[in-house]
Computed example of a mutant assay.
Amino acid sequence: MHNREQISHDEYQKTADWLMCKTKHRPQVAIVCGSGLGMLADTLKCQDSFAYSDIPGFPQSTVQGHAGRLVFGDLKGKSCVCMQGRFHMYEGHSLIKTTFPIRVFKLMGVETLIVTNAAGSLADGLKPGDIMLIKDHINVPGLVGLNPLCGPNDDKFGPRFPAMSGCYDKGLRCLAMELAKQLDITGLVQEGVYAMVGGPNFETIAEARLLHRLGVDAVGMSTAPEVLVATHCGLRVFGLSLITNKVVKSYEDTESVNHEGVLEVGRLRSQTVQQLVTELIGRMEINNNDNTNNVA
């Protein structure tokens, strides 16, 4: 079972302390970059960057399109930290390891988590190149007990039974839609429901049809565990999916998806995603109080 491994509060604190000794930045916003979207880190000013392999406690990212670096810097007057590459259950990491950075960010003073991913479209109205603002998710592994919060609860981070209704901040979604109008990209942006599956295989036709009937608009292999842990420890969350392909739902359809195609759509739409996220960070309200190490 993926969730038997436990990480102590002291281990999270050790990593947070190591990073805070290595950089002057005290991030207010954390950004997790999905496949092909690591360019978001390139917008940060006054950068400090660290390879995951050099950071105590960090797992390693093994997926093509994930650089495996943690980048600190300033963006639109906000101090940010950006993960160029995330960790996945299908890489063999336990879920508590895939979400390890989120609690470290909390200890460093982060208030808002922005999660991005590449996803396949199940909704007829979503096409490759579109941007879906995540309003809710279905955590398929979580429904069968694969959850990063399984095991003893650490009350220093959050409650035993966190509520997940409204885990994606409505105010930030409304702001993103307003910014889409200002950027003249409303035709590319809409809200929807994301589903996480375990991967690494893409979905069968029967699985795609099932998820579609459940009300899923886009499907991928990440994000839900990070959002669970972020919500558990009180972070505000904004999520978006870059739609990179249409999921096959018909036995008559001869097309198939591959990871190279996913990365190519990411490259083609990267500037638009970068612009939207940059403007969102610039416009979001942040508590400017010094809240580093605010989980005692």
Rank of each mutant, 00 (worst) to 15 (best):
N245H: 03
G199M: 11
L95R: 01
G38Y: 02
L40M: 13
G171T: 14
P27D: 11
I31D: 03
E255K: 13
T99S: 11
K22F: 00
L19T: 09
G261N: 12
E5M: 09
N147C: 12
R4E: 13
L75P: 06
V189Y: 00
M164G: 05
D155T: 13
N289I: 07
C80E: 08
D48C: 11
D154Q: 15
I185V: 07
F105L: 04
H9N: 10
G261H: 09
A67L: 11
I185M: 02
A30K: 05
Q6F: 07
L211K: 01
V189D: 00
F50D: 07
Y52Q: 11
R209A: 03
I281V: 15
R236C: 03
L95T: 13
Q84T: 14
V273N: 02
L268M: 06
L228V: 15
F238S: 08
G198D: 09
K78H: 15
G120L: 07
R269I: 05
E178H: 12
G199I: 07
I205R: 06
L276G: 03
D42H: 12
D184L: 06
H93D: 02
L211A: 10
Q274M: 08
G215N: 04
V219C: 08
K97I: 14
D54C: 05
T15N: 12
P128S: 14
P27H: 10
F238A: 11
R236Y: 03
G125C: 07
N201Q: 14
R69Q: 14
L188G: 00
H137T: 07
D154E: 15
V248K: 04
E285Y: 02
H25Q: 11
P141E: 06
Q275H: 04
G77D: 10
S53E: 15
I243H: 01
E207A: 10
Q60P: 00
P128M: 13
D290G: 06
